Simulated scan of single mutants.
Amino acid sequence: MSGICAGRVVVVTGAGRGLGRAHALAFAAAGARVVVNDLGVRLDGEPGGENPARAVAAEIRAAGGEAVAHDGDVATGEGAASLVRTALEAYGRLDTLVNNAGFLRDRMLVNLGEDDWDAVLRAHLKGHFLPLRHAAAHWRAEAKSGRGPAGRVVNTSSGAGLLGSLGQGNYSAAKAGIVALTLVAAAELDRYGVQVNAIAPAARTRMTERAFAGTMSAPATGFDAMAPENVSPLVVWLGSAASAGVSGRVFEVEGGRLSVMEGWHRGPTADKGARWGVEEVGEEALRLLAEAARPGAVYGAGPG
């Protein structure tokens, strides 16, 4: 094998279609052995009767790479544990985890049911936490045994998680939670030689081509800025040993544009040194707001 990920074993969740499929193929092209996970559900998370993980694994093998399929539910403890076991049993190691699985159940807040809230939070946020937890436990054991893993985790957030998106309160909350989880995991796992980062991609997938149909269609000619393959080079680099020293970061990537997100940071501040009165704290809050940078617009709400 040759390439930036030669010899590495990479797990990609939600890799049967869209971004996950593009990542799995890109890792294989870069020399990695890939565990392709996908539950095969429909866009809303209901059973789909397909096994796209096997199709992508077969595609990688047909191109001369190494891949195995895993069709377990990574938002369950057993599914996440079996995902890590699959990598270890097939290839004897685990180097990189790419958390990508998820689905949509979009509703405006007044129409958003509790079941739709729970299902989307479970798929995205719990579906990130459990594979991360089981992979981290493996890497901790490796570190304590003196084998010093160069573990890598790439989580998938969204612009919806950074700015919000109309009709996607559940999805936006889950994706914002993934950013916070990334920051905590990066701090906690550094001692074991594990780096954790997140991406906020914009690309054409089952989840976006309907919600943002006007901006997601492929052009007749020229650069296809919304092709999911545009996102994968960054993911492959973050999942490789070449990204040493990069952790706890969030990258926004769309077409040929790459940004390092700066997240929440303290802006204009006033400290009275004592308790504020109601009227004076309001006046001071308005003064600080006048000095502060204007936040970006929520997706779907028009310009800020």
Rank of each mutant, 00 (worst) to 15 (best):
D115G: 09
A174I: 03
A6R: 13
A29T: 12
C5H: 09
G102L: 00
L94H: 05
E142V: 09
V231S: 05
E78I: 01
H70Y: 11
D71R: 03
E262N: 14
A285R: 09
G18K: 06
V184W: 00
G193M: 00
S157A: 14
P52E: 03
E78D: 14
P52N: 08
E283R: 15
G102I: 00
V68H: 08
A53N: 08
E254V: 13
H265W: 10
L162V: 05
R122F: 03
R204Y: 01
N37L: 10
A297W: 12
G255L: 07
A87C: 07
R287A: 15
L88M: 11
A32R: 05
A29K: 14
L88W: 02
T96S: 10
A67M: 04
G273D: 07
D95A: 00
G148F: 13
V68F: 11
Y171P: 06
F212C: 02
G7I: 07
M261H: 15
D95C: 01
D73T: 10
T76C: 03
R33H: 09
P47C: 05
Y192M: 00
V9Q: 09
V194I: 06
D190W: 07
G49K: 10
G92Q: 02
V12H: 07
T208F: 03
A15G: 13
L183R: 15
V236K: 09
A137Q: 12
S217L: 10
A187V: 04
G14A: 04
L109N: 07
G161H: 02
G45Q: 09
L121K: 01
D118G: 00
I4T: 13
P228R: 01
D71K: 00
Y91K: 06
P268T: 04
A180H: 12
E50N: 08
R33T: 12
V184S: 11
S259D: 13
E114A: 09
W276M: 13
F223M: 05
A292Y: 07
N155K: 00
E291I: 04
G255Q: 09
S232R: 09
V153H: 05
G49H: 08
V34Q: 09
T208G: 06
S240C: 10
R206Y: 01
G255H: 05
